[in-house]
Design a binder for these strands. Sequence first.
DNA 1: TCGATATATCAACGAATATCGAATTATTAG
DNA 2: CTAATAATTCGATATTCGTTGATATATCGA
Lengths: 103, 103
Amino acid sequence: MNDENAVKILAALAQSTRFYVFRLLIRKGPSGLSAGAIAKELKVAQNTLSTHLNILTAAGIITYTREGRTLIYRSELQNTKNFMDYLVTDCCEGQPELCSFGK
Amino acid sequence: MNDENAVKILAALAQSTRFYVFRLLIRKGPSGLSAGAIAKELKVAQNTLSTHLNILTAAGIITYTREGRTLIYRSELQNTKNFMDYLVTDCCEGQPELCSFGK
DNA sequence: TCGATATATCAACGAATATCGAATTATTAG
DNA sequence: CTAATAATTCGATATTCGTTGATATATCGA
């Protein structure tokens, strides 16, 4: 993880539809959800959602696998965790006891 | 924390200058840093930085206190933590053991 | 092969955002 | 009060972003 990567992830999440997709997939866990199911759930146009899914995928916080003609999207838990850790690394330099973020 | 709040924080962080400011203040901890010192460190125009600081403040992840004619900015650790927790709540619904995020 | 289903890509347009120069407010020192 | 310093606010402009309609690609079943 580095600044460029983190900002890319933040930009991907900084839009309400994409944020909702992200959290939905986090909740679903490894089973994931098809693009169509997500579109239906969020009541978003199919092509609009496709663009959003592409942005989240490019940022590395979700992935997909094809199953027949449907694409199953899933959250990338490890990358998400790396990203979150990066946000607060070196908190309170020298005095980590002042932080609420466990190392 | 709610979706609207989280997206506001994400939008605040999704810009390289602001992200750098955020991480700088996280690193500094409770002692904080003046607006001028931040501008000098980042080599950013003073009014541009002011706008950025305002956006981070409105999002609730930093605050400031006046000391004479300088404003000292600090990270809001508790809000930052609440935000991060919110990102991954209910991960892998029903099977938290699949997650890398401790409850 | 043909039609249907699932999803992605492209071009265009309006909305939101970052930055800059200029002006403004607040505080302190003389 | 005046000058100097620290920082914010305003107006304008150029760039980026989200959505949409239309079209394209991939897979499946008959």
